[in-house]
């Protein structure tokens, strides 16, 4: 475990990309910032611009229209940048599997660093997931 990873994981700036979610996952992500869960104490911050991001949280089932844009957004992120799939939708397409407008699960499109299943995942689960990501990077 290097000092570089240690610094990186102590100040994760999170960018939130919704590629066709039902909005519940997005609300749960915002819940993590509320007084009850307060991820800022772990140095995690929600940023507005993809250029500042260290983590991209992807919510929702990837649909065909969003795919092109999402690839573009991912290409704009400065390395090193981690991709996290939040909710069952990006993990496995959930009930939208086989729908005419839907693409495929996220990991068939690009490498995913962490899966947080749940519909929607509880804020505790998201925080536990981020802790797992931190451990994984530090190893």
């Amino acid at each position: 475990m290097g000092i570089k990873e240690k610094i990186l994981t102590k100040s994760l700036w999170v960018f939130h990309a919704s590629v066709g979610s039902c909005n519940n996952c997005d609300i749960e992500i915002l819940d993590c910032l509320t007084p009850r869960f307060d991820v800022e104490r772990l140095g995690i911050q929600l940023v507005g611009s993809i250029r500042h991001a260290d983590v991209i949280l992807v919510t929702g089932a990837m649909n065909k229209k969003a795919l092109k844009r999402f690839k573009k957004v991912c290409g704009q992120a400065p390395k090193p940048c981690f991709i996290v799939a939040v909710g069952i939708c990006p993990c496995s397409m959930h009930m939208f599997k086989g729908s005419y407008s839907m693409q495929s699960p996220l990991d068939e499109i690009m490498p995913v660093d962490l899966y947080i299943p749940g519909c929607p995942p509880r804020p505790e689960a998201i925080i536990a997931g981020l802790a797992k990501l931190i451990n994984k990077v530090n190893k």
Partner: peptide, 28 residues
């Protein structure tokens, strides 16, 4: 700000880590 909102808030070294981290990242 965190205390005003009944949050815990970041640890004291947070601002320095944020700066250090930015110097480890790629510039586009």
């Amino acid at each position: 700000t965190a205390r005003f909102q009944y949050r815990v808030g970041p640890p004291w070294y947070q601002t320095f880590l944020d700066i250090l981290k930015l110097f480890l990242k790629e510039t586009i």
